[in-house]
Computed example of a mutant assay.
Amino acid sequence: MPRFALKIDYDGGPFQGWQRQAAHQPSVQATVEAALGRLQPGPHTIAAAGRTDAGVHGTGQVATVDLVRDWEPYRLSEALNWHLKPAPVAVIAAARVADDFHARFSATERRYLFRLVARRAPVTHDRGRVWQVLNPLDTGAMRAGAAHLLGHHDFTTFRSSLCQANSPMKTLDEVSITEHAYPGGVEYRFVLRARSFLHNQVRSIVGTLERVGTGGWAPDAVKAALEARDRAACGPVCPPQGLYLTGVGYAVDPFAGT
Rank of each mutant, 00 (worst) to 15 (best):
119 R>N: 07
246 T>E: 11
201 Q>N: 09
4 F>I: 10
41 P>G: 06
30 A>C: 08
97 V>R: 05
148 H>G: 10
38 R>C: 11
123 V>E: 12
190 F>Y: 10
37 G>D: 14
96 R>W: 05
207 G>E: 00
194 A>C: 08
166 N>R: 15
145 G>M: 01
208 T>P: 03
116 L>A: 08
159 R>T: 15
187 E>M: 15
70 D>A: 15
122 P>Q: 13
86 P>Y: 12
215 G>E: 06
81 N>K: 02
230 D>S: 10
61 Q>V: 03
184 G>H: 06
201 Q>T: 04
7 K>M: 15
207 G>V: 02
130 V>R: 03
141 A>D: 05
223 K>N: 10
245 L>H: 06
90 A>Q: 15
21 Q>L: 05
54 A>M: 01
35 A>W: 13
173 D>S: 13
257 G>P: 06
257 G>K: 06
77 S>P: 04
225 A>F: 01
127 R>A: 14
35 A>S: 14
96 R>K: 14
65 V>K: 05
206 V>K: 01
186 V>G: 08
121 A>N: 12
164 Q>D: 14
54 A>I: 02
65 V>R: 02
190 F>I: 05
135 N>Q: 10
210 E>F: 07
253 D>A: 09
143 R>T: 10
211 R>Y: 07
158 F>H: 02
138 D>Y: 10
135 N>E: 15
91 V>L: 12
148 H>C: 12
145 G>W: 01
102 H>R: 13
11 D>T: 01
172 L>F: 05
97 V>L: 10
92 I>F: 05
236 P>H: 12
92 I>D: 10
167 S>I: 08
248 V>C: 06
16 Q>I: 05
239 P>G: 07
182 Y>N: 02
19 Q>V: 04
171 T>R: 12
84 L>A: 00
236 P>Q: 09
190 F>T: 03
21 Q>Y: 00
218 A>L: 13
166 N>I: 13
228 A>C: 04
241 Q>A: 13
203 R>K: 05
210 E>V: 15
150 L>D: 07
56 V>C: 01
242 G>A: 06
201 Q>G: 07
142 M>F: 02
10 Y>D: 06
121 A>M: 06
251 A>T: 11
230 D>Y: 08
39 L>Y: 13
79 A>S: 12
227 E>Y: 10
213 G>D: 07
225 A>Y: 02
74 Y>E: 14
68 V>F: 11
96 R>N: 08
41 P>I: 01
151 G>N: 13
217 W>C: 04
36 L>W: 08
238 C>T: 15
198 L>S: 09
177 I>N: 00
104 R>W: 12
36 L>D: 07
55 G>M: 03
73 P>F: 09
81 N>T: 02
55 G>T: 00
197 F>T: 07
18 W>E: 01
153 H>F: 13
187 E>K: 14
233 A>N: 13
130 V>I: 14
163 C>N: 12
69 R>V: 14
199 H>M: 08
6 L>M: 08
90 A>S: 15
71 W>P: 06
8 I>K: 03
64 T>R: 04
250 Y>C: 09
18 W>I: 04
84 L>Q: 00
124 T>F: 13
62 V>D: 04
255 F>V: 07
47 A>W: 12
64 T>W: 00
171 T>F: 09
213 G>T: 10
174 E>Q: 10
74 Y>P: 08
52 T>Q: 00
151 G>E: 12
41 P>A: 11
92 I>G: 15
115 R>F: 03
80 L>H: 01
221 A>D: 15
119 R>L: 10
115 R>S: 09
